[in-house]
Design a protein around this nucleic acid. Structure first.
Length: 427
RNA sequence: GCCCCCGUCGACUAGCGGCCUAGGUCACAGCCCUUUCAAGGCUGUAGCACGGGUUCGAAUCCCGUCGGGGGCACCA
């Protein structure tokens, strides 16, 4: 008696992070139980946009690593079946025609209840249940009819969905009962809010999977973070691999109240994952990311720079601004100090051989001491001339990567040569 | 308006009657480390919405108030 769950997004656009949260809980539940996770597209309409969204949803799920079992199914394909079932209900007098539409006959006394796997016992007074429309007068079945019908046809054992569906449940339960179905269990997972406590929307930042991807978040981190919204393993464990998440997940530990999506905590976790990557893998991710975002920076150079930024940035998206100076000259963001250290540094660096970080550091430290300057006083002007900023990757490593000639050129004539060596085409 | 659900630091949460002078993480503050920025280490600020009960004992159970969210379509 393996479990079967489904994720049923509507193809209205890109995959919303709130939907992903629900999908993740379904997926973790299925994988933990050794059951199946189905992907069902709730399309009621055809059209180019819908087709594109359908593909986009699958691409996003693949990127996140949420693999589904079997073929993707489409609600549209069950329309005829739904109409047939609705007509049968009319024959059985469990539904009736109303101006061309078919309405379900809800009981008007008593209550409809179920024991929610997350919320616990929930009871609705039947007098509040409307006779819902099963099939519109134009022949198209409605969501509240097709959804439970599909759950029945797909033999779904556990309906795990957002709490915004709680009030649909009694209606669907009644419909399912009328169809003689064995009722599935229901679990309503908490909703996600934006930092202001309101519905997560564009004004909060990234909200679709594509946006998080473009911002330089990596799937492992996003999945781990999302799993912690409304669920916890114990009182202190937060960083968990995909396998650990699967092994430890259970609906028992899912909370009841809505959670606020915290971009800062996600960013922190993304940094944790990024730093934990083996250097080679990190470079691979960076190269792939930059390519996706349309940067045409030379791959070899990106790989050389990668280790210098790995422990400095928390999202891949920070790379372009943080490391742009490796690929093109960047004008100093502030005033250069008095020119005293710069000429001296250029002179000293010219004699460093081989031009490697350790030797460069030794030479520059010696210079600082000779000039009676603190390391910070001596190095910041060089950093500014070299990178254009007072915030950058390690100075000595950066000098090594840039090479002796380019380094000396920048130090000798800070701010010059701008516009040269442009090799980027950011979006 | 009606129905349903929820309510622990600013945020995510642990807590399922005594282990709680309420723990962890992010954020924030200070210190350390340090070539900048991060990372890391240490320390700190900060919370059981409120009011009644029940009990020897309540963050934990019950009731009410207040607050928040969701839903009330021939949308999904």
């Amino acid at each position: 008696m393996a479990v079967r769950v489904r994720f049923a997004p509507s193809p209205t656009g890109f995959l919303h992070i709130g939907s992903v949260h629900t999908a993740l809980f379904n997926w973790l539940f299925a994988r933990h139980k050794g059951g199946e996770f189905l992907l069902r597209i709730e399309n009621t309409d055809t059209g180019r946009e819908v087709a594109a969204a359908t593909e986009q949803i699958q691409e996003s799920l693949r990127w996140l690593g949420l693999d589904w079992d079997g073929d993707v199914t489409f609600q549209l394909d069950r329309m005829p079946k739904a109409q047939e079932v609705a007509n049968q209900l009319v024959v059985e007098e469990k539904a009736y025609e109303d101006e061309g539409a078919i309405r379900f006959r809800m009981p008007d006394e008593g209550t409809t209840a179920w024991d929610d796997l997350i919320l616990g016992p929930i009871e609705y007074p039947n007098e509040k249940l409307e006779d819902v429309v099963l099939v519109r007068s134009d022949g198209r079945p409605t969501y509240n009819f097709v959804s439970p019908l599909e759950d029945l046809l797909d033999e779904i054992t556990d309906v795990i969905r957002g709490q915004d569906h709680v009030s649909n449940t009694p209606k669907q339960l009644r419909i399912l009962a009328a169809l003689g179905a064995e009722l599935p269990r229901y679990a309503h997972v908490p909703l996600l809010n934006g930092p202001d406590g309101k519905k997560l929307s564009k004004r909060h930042g990234a909200i679709t999977v594509e946006e998080f991807r473009a911002a330089g978040f990596i799937p492992e981190a996003l999945v781990n973070y999302l799993a912690l919204l409304g669920w916890s393993y114990d009182d202190h464990t937060e960083v968990m691999s995909r396998d650990e998440l699967i092994e430890r997940f259970s609906l028992d530990r899912v909370g009841k109240s809505a959670a606020t999506f915290d971009y800062e905590k996600l960013t922190h976790m993304n940094g944790l994952y990024l730093r934990a990557l083996p250097p080679g893998k990190y470079a691979d991710r960076l190269v792939a990311y930059l390519r996706e975002q349309g940067y045409e920076w030379h791959e070899d150079l990106v790989r050389k720079v990668a280790p210098l930024v790995q422990e400095k940035i928390a999202t891949l998206g920070e790379f372009p601004s943080f490391a742009r100076f490796f690929f093109e000259r960047v004008p100093p963001e502030g005033p250069l100090e008095d020119g005293a250290v710069l000429p001296a540094a250029a002179e000293v660096l010219a004699r460093v051989e081989p031009f490697e970080a350790a030797a460069i550091e030794a030479a520059l430290r010696e210079l600082a001491e000779r000039l009676g300057l603190k390391p910070r006083q001596a190095f910041q002007p060089i950093r500014l001339a070299l990178t254009g900023s007072t915030v950058s990757p390690g100075l000595f490593e950066s000098l090594e990567v840039l090479g002796k000639d380019e380094s000396i050129a920048r130090i000798s004539a800070p701010g010059s040569g701008l516009g040269g060596a442009r090799g980027s085409s950011a979006r």
